[in-house]
Amino acid sequence: MALDKRMPGDMSDNDLLRYSRHIMLPEIDFEGQQKLLTAKILIIGVGGLGSPVALYLAASGIGEIIIADHDKVELNNLQRQIAYDEESLGQSKVASCADKMEKINSKIKVVQLDEKLTGQQLLSQVEVVDVVVDCTDNLTTRFEINQACVTHKKHLVSAAAIRWEGQISVYHCGDQNSPCYHCCYGMREGSREDSREELNQNCSNNGVLSPVVGVMGSLQAIEVIKLIIDKGDSLIGRVLLFDALSMQWETMQLPKNPDCSVCGRSC
């Protein structure tokens, strides 16, 4: 079949039709869509944030998407984790999410990692992708992902949501002048005698408004696309803060911390 002879990034007539609304955008055009089709990304966590990230980036035609999560779908996930439905209950999240992604776009490759990505396995996966998307739900994992991205000089698109609030930024871990996640939240690491306070920052303890994770996850997907096509102004060096209850947005400039123990001058 002619389809099999195409190189990654080549587009058939059907592909041109499928991605026509992207290609119409002068910032994307044919060349930008080809970049998306040949990109490889890693999404860690496919819960509230990871669901819209995975679905939008599958629909957008990201060539290879690795999704990692060790949870199974539970009833209390369905309020906000839009990759799942009632038939997903009890299934592994990565299997169910991959199934939904492939139903949207059978042309992309979805790799499932049904495990808690950590240690050497995390490093290995980060090393082979273009962009890492942090959609996890705890600080400990976020610090480890940040460290892995600094080690391998990868872009990290990181968002978080809880209650009515969301935060998002992009970290350019290959740029010595750019801050990393640790520059912002580093004082939290190891500052507590136990993990109770950190656990209290999870959605399961505080609750979260369903569309807030959708908003923040959608913004993550936008930032991933911008990084891949190398267009626009990314959130590198800025943190966008969202308070849905008062419908207020704030932008915070985040300078690099020269004394950061992860990316600072002594590292």
Binding site: G50, Q201, V239, E250, T251
Partner: peptide, 30 residues
Amino acid sequence: NGVFVCPTERNSTILKDNDTLALWPEVAGG
């Protein structure tokens, strides 16, 4: 004034007239 103040600098950073100080809680959920 729109710029993050690192915890280690919060004792030494002195405010001036008409400054804007914004405070947000930590967010880590997903």
